[in-house]
Computed example of a mutant assay.
Amino acid sequence: MNDQLRLCALRADPLSADEVLQALSDPGSGGQVIFLGRVRDHDHGQPVRGLGYQAHPSADARLESVCRAVGARHPEVVLAAVHRTGELAVGEIAVIVGAASAHRDAAFAAARDLIDSLKATVPIWKQQRFTDGSDEWVGLP
């Protein structure tokens, strides 16, 4: 990793917003933006009881590539991104992205770019489990 990319990882263990905030700590940054994605209790009108995330073996490398590309588009920021794998319950944190910059506008723009790019291109798939016993895969190619 370089000085701009502070944290970029897939994790089976619970994620920590404090870890991401610490990674983004920078004396030149007046603005820090952090986005937490949590498992919600519903999707498309169906109650969700939990889900599982599976990552393709290339997902780590792809996540780092996405982080570097976002950094190239936003050279004035420092970045962090972590995503869970494995089984998660409703309310657990599934993904955290963050950006820090001298000014808030740059941090907000970079954080939005990072989460949107990660969700669109990193091969991580979600199996939602509904309370009626059915399930659904989301994000498959």
Rank of each mutant, 00 (worst) to 15 (best):
G37V: 05
R84G: 06
V66R: 02
R129Y: 11
Q54T: 10
A12Y: 11
A107G: 03
S25R: 11
G139H: 08
L36I: 04
D26K: 08
W137D: 09
S25W: 07
V95M: 13
D113L: 01
P123K: 04
R104S: 04
G30T: 01
G71W: 00
G86T: 14
Y53Q: 03
S29G: 08
P57W: 14
R6A: 03
P75L: 05
A9D: 03
H42K: 13
C8W: 03
H44S: 12
L63A: 10
H83W: 04
H44C: 14
D132I: 07
E76M: 00
V77S: 02
G71D: 00
G133Q: 06
G52K: 10
L63G: 07
D105Y: 12
I93H: 13
V138Y: 14
P27V: 06
P75E: 01
L36Q: 10
D113H: 01
E19T: 06
D43L: 14
V82K: 04
L79S: 05
L114G: 00
L140I: 15
R104K: 15
R129I: 13
P27E: 03
R49V: 08
P27T: 04
A59Q: 02
Q32G: 09
S65G: 10
L114C: 01
G86H: 12
A120G: 07
R49Q: 15
L63Q: 08
T131I: 09
H56G: 04
L5H: 11
R6N: 03
A100E: 05
L140S: 07
V70C: 06
A106Y: 09
H83Y: 10
S101T: 04
A72N: 06
V39T: 14
L79M: 05
E19F: 04
Q4K: 05
R49H: 07
G31K: 03
A12C: 12
G91Y: 09
D3Y: 08
A69T: 00
L114N: 00
V78M: 10
G31Q: 08
A107D: 07
Q32I: 13
Q32P: 02
E136S: 12
R84V: 01
V33K: 01
S16Q: 10
R11K: 15
L79H: 09
L24I: 01
R11F: 02
G30M: 09
R49K: 15
A9H: 00
V70Q: 03
D3A: 15
S134T: 14
T121F: 08
T131S: 13
P123D: 04
G28K: 05
A120V: 12
P75A: 06
L15D: 00
E64Y: 04
P27A: 09
G86I: 15
G91W: 07
G30H: 07
P14S: 03
C67H: 05
R112Y: 15
I93E: 11
V77F: 01
R62F: 01
R6G: 00
N2K: 12
G28H: 15
K119A: 02
A61M: 06
W125Y: 12
L88W: 07
P141K: 13
M1D: 12
R84Q: 09
G133D: 04
I34H: 11
V77K: 03
G71E: 00
D116H: 02
